[in-house]
Design a protein around this nucleic acid. Sequence first.
DNA 1: ATGAAAGCGCTAACAT
DNA 2: ATGTTAGCGCTTTCAT
Lengths: 336, 336
Amino acid sequence: MSVTIRDVAAAAGVSTATVSRALRGLAYVDEETRLRVISAAHQLDYVASPSASRLASGRTGTIAVLTPYVGRWFFATVIEGISQALANVPLDLLLVEVGNPDRPAIGSIEQRLRSRADGAVVIALPEDHDVVDSLVEQQFPVSLVGSLTERISSIAIDDIDTGRLATQHLLNLGHREIGLISGSPSDDTRTAQGKRTAGYVSALTTAGLTPRPDLTAFGDFTQHGGERAMVEILTQPRSPTAVFCLSDEMAFGAMAALHRHGLTPGVDIALVGVDGHPQSDVLNLTTVTQPVVDMGRLATQALLDGISAGPAHQPVQKSIPVELVVRSSSAPAKNG
Amino acid sequence: MSVTIRDVAAAAGVSTATVSRALRGLAYVDEETRLRVISAAHQLDYVASPSASRLASGRTGTIAVLTPYVGRWFFATVIEGISQALANVPLDLLLVEVGNPDRPAIGSIEQRLRSRADGAVVIALPEDHDVVDSLVEQQFPVSLVGSLTERISSIAIDDIDTGRLATQHLLNLGHREIGLISGSPSDDTRTAQGKRTAGYVSALTTAGLTPRPDLTAFGDFTQHGGERAMVEILTQPRSPTAVFCLSDEMAFGAMAALHRHGLTPGVDIALVGVDGHPQSDVLNLTTVTQPVVDMGRLATQALLDGISAGPAHQPVQKSIPVELVVRSSSAPAKNG
DNA sequence: ATGAAAGCGCTAACAT
DNA sequence: ATGTTAGCGCTTTCAT
């Protein structure tokens, strides 16, 4: 079909082996020869066939990104960081949507991945998720972003601390009836959701309060879900004076619900989110921010290091510090 | 390393050719044989090596997505649509960030793509962008989302109309001094930005008005940029009573700027955006919405059709209808 | 309906 | 420093 390594070899008057070495910058090539080869390759507009070199070398030259969602802010932003980290290395980025219960894939992902990528950055999947587990078991290089674990490279914020920080902030403001908008009803303590909830509970109990189950609702980590959840909470007999939302997007929805009920965030009900979504600024949402792009970049770097160092590599674990950004959505309890 | 087609062949007592045929669902395989092969493959946990089959067949089994940004809402959402369209076909999704002036890539993208993907969905790049041009010239299957052109499959909204619609809405409300927040100072008329601006100008001139250059500012399609742009506009001697923002994200920034200046969108200055970003709802932003996920899905489908139909394929052009969603950010001019 | 065998275009020993 | 030569694991004629 197109120009092959043989054409370049012929044009440069060398063997294909020399072309291969010269073009990949390997040693044992006379500088003069290298230049001749490069020039020939350039002239012929030669590009090595990835399939061929992958087959021959056993390396795929690609990094897979495993993510449950691609459009949501947190995930898209992590992917942006990964893409940045990959911009200056000769690796392809294979995007794989996984574990989205709405859309099951064909065939097992672990299986397909094995021969398709040299490693994977996994976004927001717990360490003992089936896919992660079987990948790790197969010695497949993996790096997690959004959850921390000892045996695998992983970058995340301290979610328990995040929950505690947000809740404590509300407590400090004098709030005593603090609701919670979580993602889904699950008592899985390994997930970000589980940990943030644990932090929330811990802060409350430390303050001598008991979490009221009737003030917990679920928003599926979407804005519309957050809106519905807030409505649910508002229809309870005794409304809270503050609500901790496990993500900014849900908090935005909660804000919308408040507005629709003629209430003002920070005046009638205090709101705190998690993420540091760009819009939290415009909407004056108090939030616990995390450096999402950096996290994607760091996880990718850890993965690349792990791949080049081999299985002996010590996994990198990095707990990224979060920061509470106080805005007008959280104000002192009016009280009485 | 792992189990190959030969192992399966041995286990099933057939040749590798038969295994290949059986597993890919080709004809001329006895049903009984096929079952035996499938069962053997299953038992051995066999997965065909993509590099090998790609090399042998000449097809890459992957679709590239070319995008200038991965984290921004519009782009991430289009990618989500593409990912959805690819979920049920055996094609990999290769994500390639291009044309982001901040981060030049290594080597020419067109060149690398040729041997890496069977086709590409290109997001928001004009038809005569270098990359698109050279791809098309090489007969490489391409499908555009975000711009329309006759010779290539393309899905987009009518951007001129979009600009006109938004501006006309403001005119209908009685506004006469209508500012513009665009992306960047460029008079390229092929881009979405150029066309929306043209629609804006057209609506104004049709109404007998002359666009005032001092009421145009640039926000780089980001929220912070939109904020700065709005500040610029506000510091002009004669402020407008309304501003048309070429994207919702910039409009959010503009809202923030207004708030910071003690002004209320829709009361002091009317605002209209473009996109239908989920947050436009919470923020009560009047906007021209486009079905972004669908557009990604449609473009992908068009690409796949084009690939299977061969070069004879008639390109699909689809101009997606937009819809003006009126919210409280646009109110009648106070007037006098 | 199935098998044999020749590649696909590279890389990686191994020679020289 | 460079060339020779076996594959890598599949697909695809061409036979049978």
